[in-house]
Design a protein around this nucleic acid. Structure first.
Lengths: 201, 201
DNA sequence: TGTACATCAGTGAACGCGCGTTCACTGATGTAC
DNA sequence: TGTACATCAGTGAACGCGCGTTCACTGATGTAC
């Protein structure tokens, strides 16, 4: 028999996990808004209401945090997609998601947007776990789209890749231009092209 | 009469300009490959065969260099486009450019590629002269495409924006995935979509 | 119920390092005479 | 032709700063008795 040893625990076991989740969500927002090089460990901890010293109780290195934050970003997108497509038939679901993705709101709020549009450059240059997390996120997003596309199985994956490239490229381009009217035109053009590729309208 | 004062000049007046151009070209390559945060002033000067102290004889700040390097990057693309389209009718010219842009070679060599695919994230976050240089480069690239597109004048600008988004997004996406075969599929799918949007095939 | 204790999430001072930037200096060169 | 000189592109040591990371410590809490 293994004796059960009761240790003096100050906090509920979920307490630390909750803190880590909070740090991760703040990191996911800050990294998309300012880029990995534009956010310090101290910045992120401050946003989570903590001091920088506690960071290493949750993460091995800053890179470790970035990797986990990237996974969190793609998970947010996955949840959003699931929420939007829950009650709709495929065509309407894709239509709604494209319109939400290729939108002024997404252009103006990278901090809660798709990591491909805001971090593709930075993360393609990264190595190790960060790069792997990004790679996996991109692959799973393309696969998710493929499953909903009205196309024969052999061409689905390719059409999904082209569609994701169109959507992410459009939002990235709209962010590049200052002028609000020019950005709106880019978004409208890219949205129309994406809808066409998805077999809508 | 203003007397002409002959100053003792050690070097030909072009000498300093040549050095600056060399630094600018090295910077344009290094920035696309490693990102603004991944390259130091000393790195760039070393690549140009110089030491870091001389940097400030040519540029006011690192940001000043980045802004000028961004303009140089877009100029390289412009020259490349002009070279490729010089002897060809519009449809063939666009066809050739799309194939060169959405290619394995472009995916594998950001250092001599389009700054939109490698730096859109970083530069959209930038401010001041850097941001303006990027903004202007994007606008002029889209306008250049519009002029060659087989479409009525009212829709040209929009179709060009969607096309550039498709092309840049595809290369960015292909860089995100590790797997060579998966990247090749993304490039092929994106290239087909871009060609279709340009009214080819 | 009250007191002593063990735990460990979080604190904050300190570290070494690389960065952007400054500046006194060097030395190759063309000009003046 | 030869010598003294002025120039200024480029050198390299030094600076202050913010970063990622470490670590001795704190203090709120639940447990033991």
């Amino acid at each position: 028999m293994i004796p059960i040893i009761y240790k003096a625990m100050r906090y509920a076991p979920e307490h630390k996990d909750e803190t880590k989740t909070r740090v991760l969500k703040e990191a996911a927002a800050a990294l998309r808004q300012h880029g990995p090089a534009g956010v310090s460990v101290a910045d992120i901890m401050r946003r989570a209401g903590l001091t920088h010293g506690g960071f290493y109780a949750h993460f091995a290195t800053k890179d470790d945090l970035v990797g986990q934050a990237v996974t969190e970003m793609f998970d947010q997108g996955k949840r959003r997609f699931a929420r939007m497509t829950a009650a709709l038939p495929p065509a309407q679901a894709i239509s709604a998601y494209i319109d939400a993705y290729v939108s002024q709101d997404h252009r103006d709020h990278p901090e809660r947007g798709c990591p491909i549009t805001s971090l593709a450059g930075d993360l393609s240059r990264a190595g190790g776990a960060v790069r792997n997390a990004f790679d996996a996120g991109v692959a799973s997003m393309v696969a998710r789209f493929a499953a909903w596309l009205p196309a024969p199985e052999e061409t689905r994956a390719r059409r999904a890749a082209a569609l994701v490239a169109q959507m992410a490229g459009t939002v990235a381009l709209a962010r590049a231009v200052h002028d609000a009217a020019a950005a709106a035109n880019i978004l409208e053009a890219g949205r129309a092209a994406a809808r066409h590729q998805a077999g809508l309208q």
